[in-house]
Design a protein around this nucleic acid. Structure first.
Length: 483
RNA sequence: UCCUCAGUAGCUCAGCUGGUUAGAGCAUCUGACUGUUAAUCAGAGGGUCACUGGUUCAAGUCCAGUCUGAGGAGCCA
């Protein structure tokens, strides 16, 4: 058996009684021809391996370079140095994989995140990305655990779809037709997709919500967690062309139930990470504090990372209506001093600057805004009753988080067949193509609700990483599809 | 897609109003030292100044275009 090793995370927690173990990992630094800092990815902390003078010949010593892979046999002893409690006194070191220090891009020094993005295949081996991706894993695990405990079914909605009914942005086309101009054409010159693989025009999914609703109207509570694709030419720190989304959908839920679940959900997964990834968060907290020091005083965040997370799990989210949000903005000093670039009045789709003001300046905590104007929201959101004429609203809700803006978007769905048909007509949705969706309203329709959460934005929020490209292993953005 | 800024050694950057052989820190290599914590000390090597074209006696420096990256905006999750 080859894999008879102990992981470094476990080793560092064990009592040093001279017991013999085997570890494997990659060299982070080799100091003084005597001290190897070894990392195997199980924790951000390195194991210090002590190499006694004379244990290895000169050729082997020279091969212990930054990045080299080692198998080390030794005894766990209390450390004589100050940086760690225990260390491994080596009795045998085997080099599993050499690493040419002159060519290896990761040097024992600070690298910029931009540079590491270019070598994304190697950045897993750094402290920062080690912590980020362990937290990402923990969040994904916590999400499944949360829903599973509540009796939700995990539904796999299709990646390839024929509908762009939600109109949630530009789609990536899926086709097997030739691209050299010889694809079959209709009389009017357009591509004849009836000869394509699926016999119709298809694309990558932009959301699994509509399919999720189908499952929810049978299982009561379901969620999806999968990749989503948007061909928007967005070049920002919070957009990806390929990202992961979580979309729970619940039958017999109204907008209030929906908000309660979303808030409980966010607090649950953050609490999970705080309990299970304490060291990673401490590292990220220190990293962020260091970064903040570089900024001018007035741009610095009020809270450190861990304090921010604590605040979120210990306090209820602020809940306001869209109308109240607009009133707050209209009465704000920022508005009166004409600090906003975009105008504020009832009916507008709030701009980033408005959302940021509400969350970061006014309330200083996550805010749930509900009851948005019907004109600016999707067709499937439920029309509210008793609205003032000209000020019709829908039962939609957005959760806005400090630093990244909209993190959750959801609504109670329109379950009334006639009302839904009217809305679809208003939005020019092809009703015939959506018959499968409308069947849920024809046969045993029930009040239901759901929301969507951008997974990477959540990872950003929890890790404090400012660029979304640094919280997904291999980012897909306009003009970038490496690895 | 729009606006702003940037691209000089492996990395992070300096290089003034154009003017000798383009610099520094870190990394790498060589040697010394040996309980170090991004070890330390001494020395060495390392450059098509993003690319293409232009202005000029002379371009890393000025101009135009292209490409790439970053920040902000829009779209949104």
């Amino acid at each position: 058996m080859f894999n008879n090793r102990i992981k470094i995370k476990e080793l560092l927690q064990s009592e040093a009684k001279g017991q013999e173990v085997i570890v494997m990992g990659w060299v982070r630094t080799f100091r003084n021809n005597q001290f190897i800092a070894l990392n195997d990815g199980s924790t951000n902390n390195n194991l210090q391996i002590v190499v006694e003078l004379g244990l290895l010949n000169d050729t082997t010593l020279k091969r212990i370079t930054t990045g080299a892979a080692l198998r080390v046999k030794g005894n766990i002893i209390p450390s004589l140095g100050k940086g760690q409690k225990v260390e491994l006194k080596a009795t045998n070191i085997e080099i599993l994989g050499d690493c040419d220090a002159e060519k290896y891009p990761l040097q024992p020094k600070k690298h910029s995140l931009e540079f590491l993005r270019e070598i994304a295949h190697l950045r897993f081996r750094t402290n920062t990305f080690g912590a980020v991706f362990r937290v990402r894993h923990a969040l994904a695990f916590a999400i499944h655990q949360f829903f599973h405990q509540k009796g939700f079914l995990y539904i796999h909605t299709p990646i390839i779809t024929a509908s762009d009914a939600e109109g949630a942005g530009e789609t990536f086309r899926v086709t097997t037709l030739p691209l050299d101009g010889t694809a079959p054409k209709n009389d009017d010159g357009s591509i004849n997709f009836s000869e394509d693989f699926f016999g119709k025009s298809t694309n990558l999914t932009v959301s699994g919500q509509l399919e999720g609703e189908l499952a929810a109207t049978a299982f009561s509570d379901i969620y999806t967690f999968g990749p989503t694709f948007r061909a928007e030419n967005s070049n920002t720190t919070r957009h990806l062309a390929e990202f992961w989304m979580i979309e729970p959908e619940m039958a017999f839920y109204d907008i209030e139930d929906n908000m309660n679940l979303a808030e409980e959900f966010i607090q649950y997964i953050i609490r999970f990470v705080m309990q299970n990834n304490k060291e990673d968060l401490e590292f990220l907290d220190a990293r962020l504090a260091e970064e903040e020091k570089q900024k001018p005083q007035n741009e610095r965040q009020e809270f450190g990372l861990i304090d921010k997370l604590k605040f979120v799990i210990e306090n209820n989210f602020e809940r306001i209506t869209y109308t109240e949000a607009i009133d707050i903005l209209l009465n704000s000093p920022a508005y009166k001093k004409k600090k906003f670039k975009y105008d504020v009045k009832w009916g507008i789709d709030m701009q980033s600057e408005h959302e940021r003001y509400l969350v970061e300046k006014h309330f200083k905590k996550p805010v749930i805004v509900r009851n948005y104007p019907a004109a600016i929201k999707a067709f499937y959101m439920r029309m509210n009753e008793g609205c003032e004429e000209g000020k019709e609203t829908v039962a939609a809700m957005d959760i806005l988080a400090p630093g990244i803006g909209e993190i959750v978007g959801g609504s109670q769905r329109e379950e009334r067949y006639d009302v839904l048909i009217n809305r679809m007509k208003q939005f020019n949705i092809p009703i015939e193509e959506m018959n499968w969706y409308l069947d849920t309203r024809r046969f045993g329709s029930v009040p239901h609700a759901g929301f969507g959460l951008g997974f990477e934005r959540m990872v950003q929020f929890v890790t404090g990483m400012s660029n979304i490209r640094d919280v997904i292993p291999f980012a897909r953005t306009p003009k970038n599809c490496e690895f």
